[in-house]
Design a protein around this nucleic acid. Sequence first.
DNA 1: TTGTAGGCGTTATCAA
DNA 2: TTGATAACGCCTACAA
Lengths: 332, 332
Amino acid sequence: MATIKDVARETGLSLATISKYINGGSVREPNRARIEAAIEALGYSVNRNARSLKTNRTMTIGVVMPTLCVPFFGDVLSALDGTLRAAGYTTFVCSYEFDRALELEKLRALSNNNVDGVVLIAEGVTGEEIESALRRGGRGTPVILVDRAIPGYPCDSVVIDNLNATYAAVEHLITLGHKRIGIIVASMEIYTAFERFTGYRRALEDYGIGMDRTLVLEGNNDFESGERLFHRLMDMENPPTALCVTNYDMTLGAVTAAHERGIVLGRDMGFFGFDAVDVSRVVSPRLNVVEQPTRLMGERAGELMLKRLAGDGDSFPELLRLKARLHFFGQE
Amino acid sequence: MATIKDVARETGLSLATISKYINGGSVREPNRARIEAAIEALGYSVNRNARSLKTNRTMTIGVVMPTLCVPFFGDVLSALDGTLRAAGYTTFVCSYEFDRALELEKLRALSNNNVDGVVLIAEGVTGEEIESALRRGGRGTPVILVDRAIPGYPCDSVVIDNLNATYAAVEHLITLGHKRIGIIVASMEIYTAFERFTGYRRALEDYGIGMDRTLVLEGNNDFESGERLFHRLMDMENPPTALCVTNYDMTLGAVTAAHERGIVLGRDMGFFGFDAVDVSRVVSPRLNVVEQPTRLMGERAGELMLKRLAGDGDSFPELLRLKARLHFFGQE
DNA sequence: TTGTAGGCGTTATCAA
DNA sequence: TTGATAACGCCTACAA
């Protein structure tokens, strides 16, 4: 690999001059030309390790997500990456596969790799753990929490207004005349799940419908949970007449289970799913689903990160709560 | 940030001793204890930039994919990451959003970040471009191509046996009695698409069925393509009686379009999709789909990478061709 | 087993 | 504008 030294030798100029030029300094025209030529000829490119060692910046943002296997996160990421890239940053992603130990480990790995900032879709990690994993020079690495804030941990966050989204979904089912409405959520330990449940509970309250705890089922956010819990609900003596499922994979699972039982969602049973916008189209009648503004989330998170990177600590911690969009199909 | 120097001062030992210990060397027990204590107290962790500058290794693998929004790549990645992590490597992912310029840029970004190896799901990039983007010290960074080999470019690759998978799918449709079989593929410029088409063509040949070029439609690998091209096929004067769709999103699109037209796939029309194993369950009758061994791909790619990283250049370039699995449902 | 010293490729300071 | 020179934090002969 060619180094600045080589370029210096090739051009007859000094190390310092080359470096200055590379970093946007001005040199005399003939020198500029010679430097350019040498760089081209030698195929020189700066060694980021060395540079980072010196500058303490890597122009790199680390992203940690629970998994890469779901389109929701992929969309968020894609928008985030675009925003950061436009500002000259490269983003690196790692997934912790829903594993809490890995979650922390990945955070540490990023820290060890001296990323300038961290975007985190947290699941099990606590505020203290984040701090300890990221403890480093000066005033620390900026962290943006996406999709899930951590209650009690002051940190910039970009989230969905889960509460009102679920509220609206349940409200819709209520206006259709349903009184026994079930909900399948992820573990309430996950903040978004809790919020979604709260929206559900509040809608029932506001319409004077008593909540039946047996209609509230907690799953693991996966296909299998959706399938299994749907069956469990329908096997009850007095099954719900409508159902709300609050994430992508569980929605798919529930839809599949309904199929297996010959239940047509939206006709035999009121229904609201989450995220599965494309999939909602492959069945008929089309499913009602809540669509989260994934790209917007990514963009907002990116912008906020850039702001912090620029040293602007204004109104920290900032909490952006984005509105979800409801797609109604089938009977109104 | 604490450095080795700090640990040295804290313990009264020398820099070199600390470094040796950190890198697995042996020191006298009392010293070991003191070092450990100091590290803990100072919250020291090694600066990978500095280390890499010295060792020329970062213990980091870069992965470049077309997108993160499709489960197929997510699965491959997850398995790949697991394999590499077990060997002490951290993997960083970046996506080029199907953009050819970005594809090269990401490769360069990784190279500049001194990754030890690159795993690439290529789309538009050529062999020369890869070489030039990665040109650096000594015998160069190992590259593993996943999902798509680049014809004429000698490089380790892990791919699916697309040809035989599609062959078998089409063969199945033929044995059901179909003679007019359509296919929706991605652009033939993409190697996998070409292979899938070839499987299709060869199956028809082998069964003495003349190929009708108007039944071969090229899309953009997205939902919209699947939907649009399905309609195009069915709007023909003499539409096909069976159809093969060769990727995830286009399968979803085609299924949706079928729905819109009231066509029940597997009953009114022979059908074979790709990848959408979960989704295949939410419609009835269940869809026939080709399932690619995503996790296995990731593992194999990881193992091959580790082998190359260990300096084992045995049987280069290695081409691993993995078998896909066909899920038959509905009528046999 | 421990310590000394030199260098990895850059950037930044300060003279010239 | 240009050029010596001293870090940045770490690793590694080599010497003690």
